[in-house]
Each structure stands twice: as C-alpha cells, then as structure tokens.
Design a protein around this nucleic acid. Structure first.
Length: 459
DNA sequence: AAGGCTGTCAACCGCTGCGTT
DNA sequence: AAACGCAGCGGTTGACAGCCT
C-alpha cells in the first residue's frame, strides 16, 4: 500500500503534545542537570530534523546518541535519534515492500528464532527489525483471519532440514522446544514428529532445557496440548505417539531421564548450557483465531464447536490428536504473543462463566478454573498474573475445568468421547492434581508423587 | 457520502544487558 | 559491589490510507 502522505507531511504534534522528556525512562535516570534541559519533542520527525540528524551522523558517525541530541540541538532524545537513524535515515536501508524471497526468509527465520526481530533483521540486509516486526504482526493477523498457516509446510520443512546443517544458536529445534513450552502448535504438518525424531537435533532440547523450574514446564505444555488427547483419540495410540515424540516427557513422568540429564527437585539439570537465547516467555494462545472450519474436520466432538472462542487448549490438542500429528504446523494464531488473544480469551471466559452454572464448587469466582487454581499447587500461576489469566481464561469447555458437557455450548458434544469432562468423576480431581506440578519449594521426595494420579494416558 | 474495518507504518515505552565510574 | 549511562530489543500504540458496506 502506498501512502499518499509521507511521514514528514504529517501534522506535527501541537505544543500540547510535546511531552516532557522526564516521562522517558531513560531521561528519568538522567542527572538532575540534564533533566532540567529542554523539553523534548515527540511524534513524527520533520524533514528539517531529519536533515540535521543525517548531517550530524554523516559527519561524526554513530557514537553517543545523547551527544547527538546535545550537539545538534534537536529536541529529540538520543533514543529517538538512534531509532530515526536506524529505521529511516541509514543509507543502506532498502525501501519498499518485502520481496517474496524476503518474506519466505522471514518466515523461515521466525520458525527458527521466534520474535528475535533484530537478529532476523541482521539476516535481511537493508531491512530493519521494526519492518520485520510489523510485517510479521500483519501476517499473524492475516493468517488468523484467513485460517492459513503461519508457517507454510515447505518452509517449516526447509527450516527443519537446514537446522541440521546450520550452526544457528537458536535452531528450529530450540524454537520448537520454546513453542512446546508455549503450547504453540505450529509444527510442520508435512514433517511429522517422526521427522523430528529422525532429526538428530530435533527434540534434543528436551533434556537440554535450561535450569528452568520444571514445575513450569510440563504444566504449560500439558495445559495447552495434552488435554485433548484424552478427549479425542484412542488413548493408547496417543500414548504411543507421545512416547515416540517425547521420550523426555515419558522420562519426566517416570521421574528420570536417560543419560546425564537427570531432573531432580523439580528442575531440569543440564549438563551442557543451553545454546542461544532462552526466555521463559508466557505461553501463547495459538489457536484463538483459527477458523473453526479447519478444526471441525478433525474434531467433530470438540466441545468448543460453535463457540466464538473455543478453548484453544482443547482445539489444539484435539486437532493434533485427531490428525495424528500431521497437522501441527497449520495453526494460525501463532504469534508468539500472548497479549493479543488473551484479552479476548479472558473476555469470553468471563462471558461464558456467567452463562454456565457449572457444577463446580468454586463458590468464590464462579470460574471452574479458579477453583483449580485456588486449590492447586500451581504457585507459579499465583505469582504470574498473566499466566493466571491465561489459565483462568480457559473456557469452561476446557478439560481444565469441570464443566459438565451438557452445559457446554456444543450441540454434538459427546461426553463419552471425553471422559475428563465428567465433572463428578473423582478423576477430575486427580487429573487436576496430577496435572499440577509441584512448586520448587515442594521438592521433597514425593514432590512428583501425584504424577501417579495422572490420567491413564500418562501412566 | 459516511462510517467501520483493515493494513501499514512510525514512533514510543518499558525493559535488559553491558560497560564504565 | 553498586550506581549510572547507554545501546539495543521487543511490545505496543496511534495515525493514516484504502477498501468495503
């Protein structure tokens, strides 16, 4: 899209829009002397400002951006100057829309790196992290709306294959690990789990997880993924799949890992450092925006069919299970960003909670998930309001919750196909209990003992 | 024509890491 | 060791243009 009006033509902020620099976090740390300096301008840059900055940088180079601001008299903080230069005035910038090759590269890089825009930009000469970020966010929205895969199969496969040969410090397999933690469902449908297992690097992350509290790990994964297995498919088959795909998972359930990577006290203990950046980001709702039409093919019994917001956990797992891992890449909505879907999920959750007089004993909040959280050992949820909101936002249709299937907004829901939905079953409690992982502080000998209460599928 | 929606872009904000003092 | 200053990163927001109803 061409913009008829260039940025420099935009109306500059009026005097009332000129903000004090003290609002800036950098400025807030500045010395009192500098804080007393001139008011700094915000908003779009004018051509005159651009010219001043450009001339200065060409003459002096890029050194201290705060000095630039001082020396040129620009009413812009150094941070703003740096951004303007890096994103607009740099001579090596490539303008215009991304080429198809660049788009493919971005997709591939994102499959490997996640939201590492700066690193991706380093692989795209003339492109800025901001451009790539904007492109990706737009793509996310588009894919969500059109129910198209964020990661086209061939690109995923390509990335996966290249991963064996590259020395990228944040490989596709690591991204995969990351996304497992996030509950993402973005994996290559053509490259099945078998492919990943065949890949010497694929899934190698499993025992190589950093010393992140293990209590955070499978919980997130199970929450987002494994619930629906029980609902949708032959459990033995699923178990078989999970054994194949997640040797570490089974080892975890058994309390041991093969090789030198034992876990104890609720933590993975790694024998070699995690390569590349690893951040325990919040899990994403990967499926919130997906098209029900896509899922209906796989999950006729999905309790969430017909709901505006279907439990992403359930939908993801249902599809994964039903498609037998053959469709794990085709998940629109994988933005790696929690923020976008979360409010929606939360809002819908609230709305549905009001609709449902679930047989939950959650007297305080009415949310079945609340009861779970309140009575759980899931301390990390309590500590993390976002994660709490995430779990709490689970639709009552989620097996996480204790809603009766009869009360679910699904006409063709089959309770028989989903034993965990039987709210009165003691197994629900066990399920939750087994589901909830011990807090690191509860890392006694029996810290994982209630894993034995896992559903049969995990035993 | 008007209003809503979506896409695009630029800029800001908050935070982190690292080097220096 | 702690405080400080800076660069950089990723997330978010707001403005604007174009399209659609």
């Amino acid at each position: 899209m061409t913009r008829a009006k260039s940025e420099s033509d935009r109306v500059m902020p009026g005097p009332d829009q000129v903000d004090l620099a003290s609002h800036d976090d950098d400025s807030a740390r500045e010395s009192p002397r500098r804080r007393a300096g001139p008011q700094l301008k915000k908003g779009p840059w004018t051509p005159a400002e651009d010219a001043i900055l450009e001339a200065y940088v060409k003459k002096h180079g890029v050194q201290n951006w705060n000095v630039v601001q001082k020396d040129t008299g620009l009413l812009r903080c150094g941070k703003s100057c740096r951004l303007r230069w890096a994103n607009h005035l740099r001579p090596d910038l490539k303008k215009g829309t991304f080429t198809k090759e660049e788009e493919n590269l971005i997709i591939k890089l994102h499959s490997k790196m996640g939201n590492k825009w700066a690193r991706m930009a380093a692989r795209l000469p003339g492109r800025t992290d901001n451009e790539i970020k904007n492109y990706w966010n737009t793509r996310i929205k588009k894919c969500q709306r059109t129910s198209t895969p964020i990661y086209p199969a061939e690109i995923c496969l390509q990335a996966s294959n290249e991963d064996q040969h590259e020395s990228a410090d944040f490989s596709f397999s690591e991204k995969l690990a990351n996304d497992l933690l996030h509950g993402n469902g973005l994996y290559d449908p053509s490259s099945t789990w078998g492919d990943f297992i065949d890949d010497q690097e694929a899934l190698s992350y499993a025992p190589q997880l950093p010393d992140v509290s293990f209590s955070n790990l499978p919980g997130l994964y199970f929450e987002s993924t494994n619930h629906g297995f029980v609902d949708q498919v032959n459990q033995a088959e699923v178990l078989k799949e999970s054994e194949i795909s997640f040797p570490w998972l089974n080892a975890a359930i058994n309390g041991t890992f093969d090789g030198s990577h034992a876990f104890s006290n609720g933590n993975f203990s790694t024998s070699r450092p995690m390569t590349g950046p690893w951040k325990m980001e919040l899990p994403s709702f990967q499926f919130a925006g997906s098209d029900p039409n896509n899922w209906s093919a796989y999950s006729r019994t999905c309790a969430a069919q017909g709901a505006n917001f279907a439990d992403p956990c359930m939908r993801s797992s249902a599809a994964m299970a039903s498609a037998k891992f053959e469709h794990m890449c085709m998940i629109p909505g994988n933005s790696g960003q929690l923020e976008e879907p979360l409010p929606e999920a939360h809002a819908v959750s609230s709305a549905e909670n009001q609709q449902l007089s679930v047989g939950s004993s959650s007297a305080s909040t009415g949310s079945p998930c609340d009861a779970m959280v309140e009575t759980s050992e899931l301390h990390f949820l309590e500590r993390d309001p976002n994660l709490y909101a995430l779990v709490n936002s689970c639709s009552p249709a989620s097996p996480l919750c204790q809603a009766s299937p009869d009360e679910l907004p699904c006409s063709d829901f089959s309770s028989a196909a989903s034993p965990v939905f039987v709210s009165d079953e003691p197994t629900i409690l066990q399920y939750e209990k087994g589901f909830l992982l011990p807090h690191p502080e509860d890392s006694g000998a029996d810290a994982f003992s209630h894993w034995n209460a896992m559903p049969p599928i995990f035993q």
